[in-house]
Amino acid sequence: MTITEFKTACETLQQEYQTKISAAQSASEVEDLRVASLGRKGALTDLLKSLKDFSIEDKKTAGPLGNALKAALTAALDEKQSFFATKELNEELNKTEIDLTLPGEPVACGHRHPLSVAQDRMTEILSQLGFEWAEGPWVEDEKHNFDLLNIPLHHPARDAQDTFFVDGKMPLVLRTHTSNVQSRYMEKHKPPLRIMAPGRVFRNDSLDATHSPVFHQIEGLYVDKNVSMADLKSDLTAFMKGLFGDKAEIRFRPSFFPFTEPSVEVDVKCVFCQGKGCNVCKGSGWIEMLGAGVVHPNVLKNCGIDPEQFSGYAFGMGVERLAMMMLNIKDIRTFYENDLRILKQF
């Protein structure tokens, strides 16, 4: 066999088997073709036997040619083989019968309390607005809960906060608001200061749909040089946008708190009707959200801060009230009943 004849034989062989492999109809046909071409008595094996008679020079040409042909046929066979294997597997998988609409297996999963969900969101927003954490005792002396905050003894403003009194060495109360953190913090820290203080507060109010003797507030306090009502409005606007979205708008209404002057009630444009008037806002388009104001000069003085040099604002908001709004909860008692059917929703 000449080298030319060898080349021709290779080409013929390649063409013949490529055609046959392409046409193969099953895995076993592919296996038969593998034996017929690459097997011990296969066509390619036979052809390669002729190599031994070639000159060294010719072997250098014929050898790689034969190897390339072998590799090409192997690859074609493997590919076809894998095609049939995949097909067979898929046919098997397609026989699977399963109702995917049956329920998933329940997994133990815990839930954050709705009040925590709301409070976490609020502290997260305030945190991003630069408020630092602060806290104060829940059982408080009258000095920090009332006196330093410009709520004098024998004043109706003091009576307005139905107070729980407790036995102790000194006159103690359960704090009626988180504002005790203001007096506590300002005694120890000097301006600039910008704090938030979430926590529980207590009022001697019977439990009903809108009152609870225990509830939660978040106090905010910012004292520095040149802090004004405008800063209060700006920061609370930012806060409400965080809570209710970019369209949130607030308005100030004059009010009275002994520890702020001027004092305001802050309303937010009704998030349910965008201010058009609905059941939630009782047609007014606004919802009362929190109380705030410029820190009363007496409070600053009482805590050792010069009101001519520094000024500040403070706000206090009820977490329950905001949570009821955010989470569409109608009855404050829902928060303290801890019914799993409610807890699981958050």
Partner: peptide, 15 residues
Amino acid sequence: YDQIPVSPTKASLAF
């Protein structure tokens, strides 16, 4: 009270 403007938040940041 609508005379009171809303301006960008300023803060004295500490950690």
